[in-house]
């Protein structure tokens, strides 16, 4: 009797496990499927945007080659350089802003601390695009919307709001024990030295996280770049370029190259993301904990 019961429990568990694994496998296929499809499409030899077969019939590297050699209409290498320059500078500025603000809010006591945090929360509720037009007018009034100055404008845009995204880094700083700071102060450190010589070295994960998110923003943002660049095609970033390739006049000849470009952009970002996954989770759960 007992043995039979145990056996039935065992089969039940086996059935359960099989179902779970099959469902997981199906879901995993659904999730991975578009990614595989785009990789295959990037190697597709047949031209045109929409074809009547799901899988490519023959494979080629031409789409990648076209991306880097056919620079008359959509200059991919130039877009890449634009984005790289913008990313490097805005990353430096944004990282400084974020870390400075997070440290102040986490460690220093000052009058405007609470008001600042409330203000950040309120500002976060406004749709970001609402002020986009106004930002454009401000940049225009400052003469930053022509020629190479567009890059400066984009750098300022991407780094400008960094001081409001302090939650994750602040959550991390909050976890460093105060005793460390106090010991350093007793040893005669100024607070600046505590920040640069004690807190920052202890915060490598969050620095890596902040640097990477700041670095990635210009590669991913599309709307701001589009509004600020307008018709200046030599200042386009990667994101606008890829979007352009799908517009009616380009899609037929550029569709497979779009897939190639998407793959090229995704590889470094995917590697960065997979590496910093742990920090991302830590950061977010830190933020949830407050």
């Amino acid at each position: 009797m007992a043995a039979a019961k145990m056996k039935s429990a065992k089969t039940k568990r086996l059935i359960n496990n099989t179902i779970v694994h099959v469902v997981l496998a199906i879901l995993a296929v659904i999730w991975v499927f578009p990614i595989i499809w785009v990789v295959l499409t990037s190697f597709r030899a047949e031209k045109g945007s929409y074809v009547s077969t799901f899988l490519p019939q023959s494979y080629t590297l031409d789409n990648y080659i076209k991306l880097f050699t056919d620079i008359s209409i959509l200059n991919f290498p130039k877009m890449f350089m634009n984005t790289l320059i913008i990313a490097i500078f805005s990353c430096l500025i944004a990282t400084f802003y974020t870390l400075a603000v997070s440290y102040c809010l986490s460690r220093l006591k000052f009058k405007l601390r609470k008001p600042y945090m409330n203000m950040a929360m309120i500002l976060g509720l406004f749709p970001g695009f609402m002020s986009m037009v106004a930002v454009y007018f401000i940049l225009k009034a400052a003469g930053l919307t022509e020629g190479n100055m567009i890059r400066v404008a984009l750098i300022l845009c991407y780094s400008g709001g960094a001081g409001l995204g302090f939650q994750i880094a602040k959550g991390f700083f909050d976890t460093i024990p105060y005793a460390v700071d106090e010991a350093a102060i007793l040893d005669g450190c100024t607070k600046w030295q505590v920040f640069t010589k004690v807190t920052l070295p202890l915060s490598k994960p969050i620095i890596v996280y902040t640097v990477l998110t700041a670095f990635m923003a210009p590669w991913l943002d599309f709307i701001f770049a589009k509004v600020i660049c307008r018709a200046n095609s030599d200042q386009y970033t990667i994101a606008i370029g890829l979007w352009k390739m799908l517009e009616k006049e380009y899609i037929d000849s550029w569709y497979t190259s779009f897939a190639a470009g998407a793959v090229l952009i995704s590889i470094p970002i995917a590697i960065l993301f997979l590496c910093m996954q742990k920090y991302y989770v830590d950061g977010v759960s830190g933020a949830v904990k407050g």
Binding site: L123, G161, F195
Partner: peptide
């Protein structure tokens, strides 16, 4: 220290977030 560290981010927020928003 908070004055030193908060001023540049605050300035950026004023110019690129608050001013456009009020506008």
């Amino acid at each position: 220290l908070h004055r030193l560290l908060m001023t540049p981010p605050m300035a950026a927020i004023c110019i690129f977030t608050i001013l456009p928003l009020i506008f």
